[in-house]
């Protein structure tokens, strides 16, 4: 008896549909009714969503960052600087320094920091009578270069970028973009990974790493250099900068492994800061 090819093909088709049915019916959200009594007409919609290149994403990130910067007229925040020694998991970490400042910034060039707390485990003075320890000064630049340095047009040619992954979270699409220096000898240029929310093309987080220590004689490596942002009203702003340094030899005061962290909190953005609060317009040299 010769098998009927039509019957065989129909059987195959039925089997395939039967295999597909459980997948189609798999619960992936709320349970809906059959709704066969509901009638509606949906007009034809042309979905026009062209894929953009990585270059275009980088451009949009830069434009998003510029837009963010252009919208901030003034801001004030609480800046906490911490240094913690013995973070090598062999000892109990010890806080050696905590300074808290209220920072005021206003465009175009006003900046002031009011010291609110200055605590050190062992206060020491340098040769000029100033307190020894980690110092962080502020200027009037609110563009948060530490977050977006690799995306700036003047630096972008120095790095290679690639999309490492993406997450779709509700109506947010997060791209994880990896960048690394083009030159193998740029020891001070970090590699990194940024999380970009394409809702506003803003960087929400950055993790940096150095393939080689910039100063191998003293610095064994930098582990876990993280830059985080958070949303404050309509703006994404710096939230934390944290780094763990591992030294080759114990350094007096901080040991062989120490953390350095800056936290930014209690933001007030575009709420107006009176000119009288600032010193005469002057840009400070360092940040």
């Amino acid at each position: 008896m010769t098998p009927n090819p039509t019957a065989l093909f129909l059987l195959l088709a039925l089997l395939t549909v039967a295999r597909a049915l459980p997948a189609a019916a798999a619960p992936s959200g709320p349970v809906l009714a059959v709704e066969d009594t509901m009638k509606t007409e949906v007009s034809e919609v042309l979905v026009n969503a062209p894929r953009v290149t990585l270059d275009e994403i980088l451009n949009r990130v830069h434009r998003g960052e510029m837009r963010r910067d252009s919208l901030v007229r003034d801001q004030s925040y609480l800046q906490t600087v911490r240094v913690v020694r013995d973070t090598d998991d062999k000892h109990k970490p010890v806080l050696v320094q905590e300074t808290v400042d209220r920072v005021y910034m206003a465009k175009p060039d006003k900046a002031r920091a009011v010291r609110l707390r200055d605590w050190k485990l062992k206060a020491k003075k340098d040769a000029e009578g100033d307190d020894k320890g980690v110092k962080v000064s502020v200027d009037s630049d609110m563009s948060e270069e530490i977050v977006n340095f690799a995306f700036r047009p003047e630096n972008r040619g120095e790095f290679k970028f690639r999309i490492e992954g993406r997450e779709i979270l509700g109506d947010h699409l997060i791209y994880r973009i990896r960048f690394e220096p083009r030159s193998a000898l740029d020891v001070f240029a970090p590699s990194g990974r940024v999380w970009v929310d394409t809702h506003e093309y803003v960087i929400v987080r950055q993790a940096l790493e150095f393939k080689q220590s910039p100063v191998p004689l003293f610095l064994r490596g930098i582990r876990g250099l993280v830059v985080e942002r958070k949303r404050e009203g309509d703006f994404w702003v710096l939230s934390r900068v944290l780094a763990r340094m591992e030294m080759t030899i114990p350094v007096p005061g901080v040991g062989k492994s120490f953390d350095f962290g800056i936290q930014f909190s209690d933001y007030h953005i575009n709420q107006g800061i009176p000119d009288s609060l600032f010193a005469p317009a002057r840009k400070q040299a360092t940040k």
Partner: peptide, 27 residues
């Protein structure tokens, strides 16, 4: 939608908290 996004960002922050411990604590 926002909950999922916030939870994603928060989970990364939580792992940072766990790694840095005392350094990452709120002042």
């Amino acid at each position: 939608a926002d909950t999922a996004f916030d939870a994603y960002v928060r989970s990364m922050s939580d792992s940072t908290d766990a790694f840095f411990g005392l350094t990452a604590q709120e002042p």
